[in-house]
Amino acid sequence: MSEQGKKYWTDDPELVERYILGKLSPEEMERLDREIAGCEPCKAIIAREAEIAAGIRRHGRDRMKADLRKKLRRDRASQFYSYQYIGLAAAVVVIAIGIGLYQIWFSDLVAPKQFQHPQIIITSKPDTSGNIREQQNDAERDSKQIAEGSAVQKKSERREGIRIERQSASQKFAERTVEPTVSGNAPAKNDHPSVADGGSVAVSEALPENHSAAVWLIGNVVMIGERAGSSMEKSSRSSSSGEMTAVKKSSDGKVIVRHRAVKELPSDRAAASRASGQIETLLERNDDKLVLTLFDDSVNESDVQQAVIESLSDDLLVVALPNQRITYHLPSGWNQSSRSR
């Protein structure tokens, strides 16, 4: 730009741009400012260039701001989704833990719980030989047979007195666990007398909802004094009675003491030789009660009626009869389960 023929630096567009963008040194800027101080057209050129530069910058900022907003929206959305995924993963973990805990408490996976619910009951055919009869109630039997899924089979079984014998993994587990605890006295699968081997006592497994169980124990007898009437007398009386049904309940109704003659023992139990002072005893648990059946001819009905449960702890049961005290070591967990229920 010239004013009265004079040349000014604003005629150089490159220099104007550098001036506008502040790309000159302060000294140079000051010098250029001085030169155009009296040149109004030069100032107009500078102003126009500055407006264009400012407008372009604003355009740059606006575009970048729009881009940034898009990025932030995307970022927030992805954060939201990542929170959702985290929440979903947490829910899956919680559900998995819940299922795990449920299985620990209610399924076959944990030994102690299963041990407290060994699924064994003692049943028998209708009595034709004077053997043990432990009749399940009809409701239980019906439900078991319904579970087997055949009404026809149910009728047939009733008529023939045949029990469905099943053994679940839980029972096997229970038996495996019980056996070492009671020194081989537990009614392991092969120890159970069955219809097939001539005995009337069959050990069969109840359905899981039936909380019954049985285990053979050896009671150690300590004589605490003679009383009127010898043991021989009692023995003969007992033996001749065929079936003893005397029952004694403990004061809290938790333990029921029964008595049977030795001849009613299952063949394999009867065959086992016991030292004197030992009594073959079947301990059953039926829901919250312990049923103790003594197979001994020296005990009579009157003794059973006077029986006292002297001690019942987690691992010890002591039954006091009028002239003797019988001590049992309970398998671990047997008494606990009845208490927990």
């Binding site: 407006e51 400012a54 407008g55 372009i56 604003r58 900022r61």
Partner: peptide
């Protein structure tokens, strides 16, 4: 930059 004119140019 904040002026109205720069907005027109943008």
């Amino acid at each position: 930059i904040d002026s109205e004119r720069s907005e027109h140019i943008a």
